[in-house]
Design a protein around this nucleic acid. Sequence first.
DNA 1: TGGACATTCAAACAGCTGTTTAATACAGTT
DNA 2: AACTGTATTAAACAGCTGTTTGAATGTCCA
Lengths: 230, 230
Amino acid sequence: MGAKSAALSSDQDTRERLLTEAARLFAARGFARVTVRDICRAANANVAAVNYHFQGKRGLYDAVVRMAIERMQQTTEAAQEAGRGMPASGQLASYVSVFLQRVIPHRDGWIHQLMVRELAEPTPALQLVVREVLEPRARYLTRIVASIMQLRTDDLRVQRAVVSVNSQCFAAIDSRLPVSAFSPTTPAGVDDLADHIASFSLGGIQRLTSSPRATRGTRPARRARLPRRP
Amino acid sequence: MGAKSAALSSDQDTRERLLTEAARLFAARGFARVTVRDICRAANANVAAVNYHFQGKRGLYDAVVRMAIERMQQTTEAAQEAGRGMPASGQLASYVSVFLQRVIPHRDGWIHQLMVRELAEPTPALQLVVREVLEPRARYLTRIVASIMQLRTDDLRVQRAVVSVNSQCFAAIDSRLPVSAFSPTTPAGVDDLADHIASFSLGGIQRLTSSPRATRGTRPARRARLPRRP
DNA sequence: TGGACATTCAAACAGCTGTTTAATACAGTT
DNA sequence: AACTGTATTAAACAGCTGTTTGAATGTCCA
């Protein structure tokens, strides 16, 4: 290989520097708002380097997404590992906790910023993320919830409960809205939040299980037919 | 006014046509991926029309966002109206139901597509959306939840519960992921989903209320000042 | 050494971007 | 009739976009 071995701009080679800076920039500003020249300037590389190493801007982006997927898979694995041997409700709490502890603080930030953007303007890469990360996580959670509710994993009530849990986790990740008491700053705060989500969710699941339909006595009458515009 | 009265391309004038097509396109593809020329072609208008009527692309986008805000405020109002006179738990269910019924089906789709994109790459307009739509909704929900839990509205447990409820509603809106049993197609399906979210949430709230201390030793504490960002 | 190879570089390319311009058309008023 | 202000138009503008080029590097192995 013809690397310049040492000296000069950095100790990692150009390809790696491009990858690092591209991840940071794509996450921070989105695919369309980052120019190849931005990335190359940040990575101390020539404009042509992106095309040389990644066959274009899109190729570089795909490489970044693939990098993100790997990291997310590690998180999935860790979250499952932490609950091994526990009862289902403990696994749920454990999953939520590990998930938040890993994702909220530290510097994994760029990954989820990137994912949020990818969801907003999906590229072919999104399909890969869904299959390799999101679906496995959902399957794992589904097994847990089904176990708690003592229902089949393909029961609609189970699948809805899973989404209810998942959506809370995602809300905790979204740093998009400045609002929300869902943005803890300390590790203890993250633990607190994880406890809340797990507890809230277990309560919700319990309610669904005990009364497959309807709410306590406080049925909201029959639904007021909504008027209003088409 | 110097409109061509009738005939020709359409019966609404250029300004309105631009607004309509811009809303559709911005929602479908995002701000950066829509060109002024795209919009003008779709609206049968000249390229310069955008600058003439809206002082530029950004001005047109702002106008679209303002349009979206108005519609969303109507939804907020309707959701609150529907629960008037009910007990708090009924108001919660009612809020969720009206919210979903209005947002999920039919052709309000562009509004929330637009919001998702705005969240992903915020413009100065986002601040307006937060203040005029999101915060009022959150305040209303907060009053309801606080009433159910019999706690102050500024109690951290209340605010977290509100986010838990809200995040489920947002998940139901997000049509971004093909996945999820959260994507009903019929009005009855929407009702079902609304029931689920309301029920799940009431269960979660109940659990939080009955066990003030979380599942672990961590204390929800008395009104820990909410961690504001520096 | 000298050729083979991978990598970097400055420069140029073609294309699209939002915006401006200056000319024109047309309704209503005087 | 001429004047006025609004609205539309085709054409051009300046700037940035991702990508390509062809020459110049440096490194390794025969």
